[in-house]
Design a protein around this nucleic acid. Sequence first.
DNA 1: CTACGATTGTTATGTTCTTCACATTGCTCC
DNA 2: GGAGCAATGTGAAGAACATAACAATCGTAG
Lengths: 208, 208
Amino acid sequence: MGARASIPDIVIGRLPIYLRALDRMIQEEKDYTSSHELGERLGISSAQIRKDLSHFGEFGKQGTGYNVQFLYEQIRHILKVDREWLMALVGVGDLGHAIADYRGFKARGFRIVALFDADPVKVGERIGDLTILPMEQLSAEIRHLGIRIAMIAVPAAEAQAVADRLIEAGVTALLNYAPITLAVPVGVRVQYIDPAAHLQHMTYYLAP
Amino acid sequence: MGARASIPDIVIGRLPIYLRALDRMIQEEKDYTSSHELGERLGISSAQIRKDLSHFGEFGKQGTGYNVQFLYEQIRHILKVDREWLMALVGVGDLGHAIADYRGFKARGFRIVALFDADPVKVGERIGDLTILPMEQLSAEIRHLGIRIAMIAVPAAEAQAVADRLIEAGVTALLNYAPITLAVPVGVRVQYIDPAAHLQHMTYYLAP
DNA sequence: CTACGATTGTTATGTTCTTCACATTGCTCC
DNA sequence: GGAGCAATGTGAAGAACATAACAATCGTAG
């Protein structure tokens, strides 16, 4: 297949998982894998993996399976992560600091190039080779750098207002660390990082 | 209804989202809400919210809606977060430090009471009122404190081994910050925190 | 005290997602 | 070079999930 017809979002959400596993296989210097092996590692059925991939093209060979490096590059291309993305971070408190220092972003092609904070005391402070800018410069800086992805690490009460400003400045993808659901116009994507919510999900299954 | 019959996991996963919204409404001193209002805030259909809640009981009143405080407490009870949970954290590098300092856990009833690291240099270091313990003490300490939830913040290459040790010590819920899918026996739950994966999910939808 | 508007809980319907199962293809080994 | 094994891609079947729709109920206002 490989049609351009709208592909289920849930499928897109699994591609980064496949990417993680393939990354690992590359480190293990594995040349080939199969839907069965991938599925085993990920706790996903092999049929699901084949079906997911079939939305985008034919990447495997019957009898042989998938070339790890090739599949890795194909998925990176599909997800558009075969390039570097520039990001802004709003809110540089404890959490924001940790996000700014987190190595997992650059390692996968996401580079933070702008920091903003509403606190005048923090403005001007340097983190790595970046200077924290005041909120007043947010729109201009984001437009100037052509940033389309932003991370929000401000208190819940301010997150919606920050999101509104970012969207107004042209951002269309938000990674929100504040424990609140954001209202955004169509065309803007939001993903949430809420570790406590994940814990709450698991406690349901724990014995009293 | 309110049956004990196995409730879809996807429903359990939405309860923490409802909780976040209700928490916020409590702060806004709202006394009552409706499935329609909740749904509007969360971008979820009102029918879905009513259906989700109906798995656990009848919490609303026709014509009136839901008492915010009451529903909040009911969901907390369902998720078993109407108490304090003790947690262990393994891996106290940059990321682990940030997790140890993160306020969002205590604020929602999750308390870190044990820290472990394999690096002898870090062992003995204090963070808040906790001392970083060596891996050798992991099993004994976790059993001693009766810990059932642990967070993993070690490099991907070591995460599986750490998970195995934690499970062996009696942990049955894991929050994994390492970018790798863990293999665990049935009865053990795993949730993943992988911000870069969320970003990769969103870049798919961005224009080239 | 009755009529009306609002909102729930739930059953029925529709949609989406997952798994099954197999024809097809490619590789390897004798 | 043909037989046998292995693994893909996919259409059909099945399962899970979401939405629609409505009877039942509650509160309120006249």
